[in-house]
C-alpha cells in the first residue's frame, strides 16, 4: 500500500496562460507529467515562464486554458484554498510572517486544517528537528532573529508541516550565499531521499538543477520545453543548441560529479598513489589526479581495501570519450 503522504503524480496538459493585451501567452500549451516522488527541476532564464507555470499548479496564477491534475484529480475544479493546504509552497523570499514566532509560522497550515493543539505542537518539534534546528532554541524566536539559512530551513519546514504529497519550490535557495546554498541543497537532497515528495523546483541555476533533480525540464520563452530528461542524459546529449548553451561550459565536469567511481571499470592499483572510496564521484577522482599530478588514483571499496585504480583515460571513458591507448601520445 502506498504511503499516503508520499508523492503523487502531477499532469499538466496544454496549459496556457495569456495576459490580456499581450500577443503571446506567458505560457503556451505546456504539457508534462511528473511522476510520483519525483523531483523535477524547471530550469530556464528569467522571464521564460517557469515560475508562472509552477504557480498555476496551486492556482496562485489561474491558467487561461488547459488542465492540471494531481493524483488524477482536476485542480481547477477544487476550492483553491483547500487545494493549497495540501501543496507545500516555498518561495525565494521565504515569506516567513515576521509577527509570528517560528512555531506559529510552521503551525499555519496544520491550524488551517483544524489539527489539535497537541498534534500541532508535536509536529512543529518534529519538523524543526528534521531541518536541524533545536526546537528548544528556535520555536519561540521570531524570524528576524534567525540567519538567512535558518529562515530558509524554517520555510521548508513550514511547507512540509501538513505533510503535503506535493511541494512547489520557487528558487528556494536563491537568496542565500553560495556556501549556505550548497549546505541547504545537500540537506534538502537527504531530506527528499527520506520523504519522497513529488516536487517541482524552479531555478535558473543549472548547477543546482543537476545537483538536485531527478529530471530537468529545460525551458525557453513561453515555457517551451526544450528538453526534459535526467541530468546525466541532458549533459551527455543536449537536445539542441539552446540546451547546450544553457548548460554552458563544464558539462563534462558536471557529468563526472554524477557518476560514482564504483560504476566504472577499474584498472590494477599501483602502490604509490592516493586513494578514494567507491562512493566518491569521478569528479573527486579527477580532482585528486589534478592535485597530485599523478598518473592514477587508487580506489578502496567499502571495507577499506584497495579495489583498483583510475586513470585520466578511465575517467574520460566513463563519459563515452574515445579511449586513447596509454603511453602513445605524440
Amino acid at each position: 500500500m502506498p504511503d499516503p503522504t508520499a508523492g503523487v503524480g502531477i499532469e499538466l496538459s496544454d496549459v496556457t496562460k495569456r495576459y490580456p493585451g499581450q500577443e503571446h501567452g506567458a505560457v503556451e500549451d505546456f504539457s508534462l507529467r511528473v511522476e510520483p516522488g519525483e523531483l523535477l527541476m524547471f530550469v530556464g532564464p528569467s522571464g521564460c515562464g517557469k515560475t508562472t507555470t509552477m504557480k498555476m499548479i496551486n492556482r496562485i496564477i489561474e491558467p487561461t486554458s488547459g488542465s492540471i491534475t494531481i493524483d488524477g484529480e482536476d485542480v481547477l475544479s477544487l476550492d483553491p484554498n483547500e487545494l493549497r493546504r495540501h501543496i507545500g509552497y516555498v518561495i525565494q523570499q521565504i515569506g516567513l510572517f515576521p509577527h509570528m514566532t517560528i512555531a506559529e509560522n510552521i503551525a499555519t497550515v496544520p491550524k488551517l486544517l483544524g489539527w489539535s493543539k497537541a498534534r500541532v505542537a508535536d509536529r512543529v518539534d518534529e519538523l524543526l528537528r528534521t531541518v536541524a534546528l533545536d526546537p528548544g532554541v528556535f520555536a519561540h524566536r521570531y524570524p528576524k532573529q534567525l540567519s538567512g539559512g535558518q529562515q530558509q530551513r524554517v520555510g521548508v519546514a513550514r511547507a512540509l508541516a501538513a505533510d503535503p504529497p506535493v511541494m512547489l519550490m520557487d528558487e528556494p535557495f536563491g537568496a542565500t550565499d553560495p556556501i549556505t546554498r550548497l549546505r541547504l541543497q545537500e540537506e534538502f537532497r537527504r531530506l527528499q531521499a527520506d520523504i519522497g515528495k513529488t516536487i517541482i523546483f524552479v531555478t535558473h541555476d543549472f548547477d543546482e538543477a543537476v545537483r538536485l533533480g531527478d529530471r530537468i525540464a529545460v525551458l525557453s520563452e513561453r515555457s517551451r520545453i526544450e528538453q526534459c530528461d535526467t541530468p546525466a542524459n541532458i549533459l551527455a546529449d543536449p537536445a539542441n543548441e539552446y540546451v547546450a548553451g544553457f548548460i554552458g561550459r563544464g558539462a563534462g565536469l558536471m557529468r563526472l560529479a554524477l557518476i560514482p567511481i564504483g560504476e566504472v571499470p577499474l584498472e590494477a592499483p599501483d602502490d604509490s598513489s592516493a586513494a578514494l572510496g567507491v562512493q566518491d564521484s569521478l569528479r573527486d577522482a579527477l580532482d585528486l589526479l589534478v592535485l597530485t599530478g599523478g598518473q592514477r588514483v587508487n580506489v578502496t571499496d567499502e571495507s577499506g581495501s584497495v579495489a583498483g585504480s583510475l586513470t585520466h583515460a578511465g575517467i574520460s571513458a566513463a563519459l563515452g570519450a574515445p579511449r586513447l591507448p596509454t603511453g602513445t601520445a605524440p
Binding site: 483547500e82 493549497r84 501543496i87 509552497y89 488551517l112
Partner: peptide, 8 residues
C-alpha cells in the same frame, strides 16, 4: 503570496 499559497 506566501499566506495565499498556504491556503488562507
Amino acid at each position: 503570496e506566501s499566506a495565499r499559497g498556504m491556503g488562507m
